[in-house]
């Protein structure tokens, strides 16, 4: 997200919103199927456990997917918009986008709820970006180039 180079594993901006919507939705549906499958199985009486798991998946996995998808898609939408306005890519993009996503999703709960949710989301994304930066710095430290060892036989420069 905050790499200086162009990232060729992601598509350019307006179209990537669809990609993120779909990716987040698929992640939510698959994860929700596992989660609600196990939950429905455990909460059903003996003899109806498989049908219970299936109906729990049918009823709840798409909803989880929808929640994930709307979050990811809105985040991508705001990220792209902020990129277009600020014309730079750094950690503040993600934090601002998280702020707006939190606010947008809580829009029906009133002003106070919106602000709380927006700040929570911004802090969450700030932590995420911070961890990403720390990890990046650690990787750079662990793979830093080592200087060539000086040969033992004294300094013999290439002067003829």
């Amino acid at each position: 997200m905050s790499t200086p180079e162009a990232d060729h594993s992601r598509d350019p901006c307006p179209i990537v919103i669809l990609n993120d919507f779909g990716g987040a939705y698929a992640m939510g549906v698959i994860g929700g199927s596992i989660w609600h499958g196990i939950k429905g199985f455990r909460n059903s009486p003996y003899g109806e456990r498989r049908i219970g798991a299936l109906s729990a998946i049918k009823a709840r996995a798409p909803v989880v997917g929808g929640n994930f998808g709307v979050w990811g898609g809105l985040f991508s939408f705001y990220d792209c918009s902020i990129k277009a306005i600020r014309k730079r890519e750094d950690a503040w993009n993600a934090i601002l986008a998280g702020f707006f996503v939190g606010g947008s999703l809580a829009v029906r709960g009133g002003r106070k709820h919106m602000l709380n949710s927006a700040i929570t989301c911004a802090i969450f994304l700030g932590i995420l970006e911070g961890v990403g930066m720390m990890f990046q710095r650690y990787m750079a430290y662990a793979n830093k180039p080592v200087p060539m060892p000086v040969p033992d036989g004294g300094a013999a420069p290439l002067s003829a």
């Binding site: 669809l18 990609n19 993120d20 919507f21 779909g22 990716g23 939705y25 929808g66 898609g73």
Partner: peptide, 20 residues
């Protein structure tokens, strides 16, 4: 319609387009 890098792009774009 879009260039695709394989199954993951197809999945993401297809699902995303239909969902939206």
């Amino acid at each position: 319609i879009l260039p695709s890098r394989g199954w993951s792009d197809d999945l993401c774009y297809g699902t995303g387009t239909l969902y939206v």
